[in-house]
Amino acid sequence: MADSIEFVPAEYSSRTQPESTAWEILRCDPRGIDTLVAAGLPFEYRSGMRHFDVNDLYNLGMYSGRSNTQPELAFRMLFRFAGRSVDDLLHEKRWDFRVQLECVGCEGVAPWRFEAPDVVRFGGRVAGVVAPRASEGTAGYEATVTTAGARTPLVSAELRRLTRDYLEAGYRWQMIPVAMQADYQLVHALGVTSCIAASLSLAERFRAAGYRAEAKRGWFCGVLGGALDLPHACVEVEDDDGVIKTVDIAKAQLAARLSPNTGDFRELCVGSIYNKVIPSTASGNASFATHECGSRLPVHVRADIRSVR
Results as ranks from 00 to 15, higher is better:
M1D: 09
S4D: 06
F7G: 08
F7K: 12
T16G: 10
S20C: 08
S20K: 09
T21S: 14
T21V: 15
T21M: 13
I25L: 15
L26I: 15
R27P: 01
C28N: 11
T35S: 15
L36Q: 15
A38C: 09
A39D: 15
A39R: 15
P42F: 13
R46H: 09
R46N: 04
S47V: 00
G48C: 01
G48M: 02
D53W: 02
D53Y: 03
D53N: 11
V54M: 13
D56E: 09
Y58I: 08
L60I: 15
M62W: 10
Y63A: 05
S64D: 14
G65V: 12
R66H: 14
P71W: 09
R76M: 10
R80W: 06
G83K: 08
G83V: 10
V86M: 04
V86S: 04
D87H: 07
D88I: 10
D88P: 04
D88T: 15
D88C: 07
L89A: 06
K93C: 06
R98Y: 09
R98P: 02
C103V: 01
P111Y: 06
R113V: 15
A116Y: 05
P117V: 14
V120T: 15
A127Q: 12
A127V: 10
V130W: 11
A131R: 14
A131E: 15
S135I: 02
Y141H: 10
T144I: 00
T144G: 09
T147Q: 11
A148D: 00
A150Y: 02
R151V: 13
T152F: 12
T152G: 10
L154H: 01
V155R: 13
V155A: 06
S156G: 13
E158S: 07
L159S: 10
T163H: 08
R164N: 14
G170V: 06
W173S: 05
Q174V: 05
I176Y: 02
P177H: 08
A179I: 08
A179D: 14
A182W: 07
A182S: 13
Y184T: 06
V187A: 07
T193S: 12
S194N: 11
C195Q: 03
S199L: 13
S201H: 11
R207C: 08
A208G: 09
A209R: 04
A209D: 06
Y211W: 14
A213N: 01
A215Y: 02
G218T: 07
W219A: 07
V223E: 09
G225F: 06
G225N: 03
G226T: 03
D229T: 07
P231L: 08
P231T: 10
V235D: 02
V237L: 10
E238P: 01
E238T: 14
G242I: 12
V243R: 14
I244M: 14
K245A: 05
K251M: 15
A252F: 07
A256P: 01
R257N: 04
L258I: 09
L258H: 03
P260K: 05
T262Y: 04
T262S: 12
G263S: 06
G263C: 02
D264Y: 03
F265D: 02
R266H: 02
R266C: 06
C269W: 02
S272C: 05
Y274L: 01
K276D: 04
V277R: 00
I278E: 02
I278C: 06
N285Y: 00
N285H: 04
N285A: 10
A286H: 08
F288W: 08
F288Y: 14
A289C: 12
H291N: 00
H291K: 00
G294K: 00
G294A: 03
G294V: 00
V301W: 00
A303G: 13
I305T: 11
